[in-house]
Amino acid sequence: MNRCRLQIFYEGRVQGVGFRYSVKSIASGFEVTGTVKNLADGRVELVAEGTKDELNAFQHAIRESELGHFIQNEDVEWGEPWGNIRGFEIAK
């Protein structure tokens, strides 16, 4: 199984609308591990690891969910997995 790492910075009205909790809920339907957290500049950072197909499906599900209309921009980066993430959590 070829795992990779996906990092997305979401911009828009993504804080104060239950974004992180919804992303965590969506993650439960996928074979991914990761974290989602608010940033001081108003963006939300998502870091997830899994297979590329699973991560693509997870990213698509977030866009297609009720969260989609809050997202104005996504800055996406792919990389090698760090392998240090267990489960899916909302980070502080």
Rank of each mutant, 00 (worst) to 15 (best):
V47C: 04
Q59F: 09
L39F: 01
E11N: 12
E66Q: 09
R13G: 01
Y10H: 08
P81K: 04
W78E: 05
F88M: 10
S25G: 07
A27L: 07
R86N: 11
E80W: 01
E54C: 04
C4E: 15
A57R: 14
N56E: 15
Q7M: 13
F70E: 04
A27P: 04
S22F: 10
I71H: 02
R43N: 12
S25M: 03
G16R: 03
V23D: 06
V44D: 04
E45F: 04
Y21K: 15
M1R: 09
G16D: 08
V23K: 07
K24S: 14
Q15C: 05
F19D: 14
L46P: 00
E64M: 13
Q72R: 13
G68T: 11
G16S: 06
L39Q: 09
G79L: 00
M1H: 13
A40V: 05
A27I: 12
L6M: 14
H60A: 14
E89C: 01
A40M: 06
E11P: 00
K92F: 14
G79Q: 03
V47G: 03
S65C: 06
D75M: 11
I71K: 01
E64R: 13
T51M: 08
R63W: 05
L6F: 01
S28L: 14
G42P: 03
S25H: 10
E74L: 14
I26L: 15
N73S: 12
F70A: 08
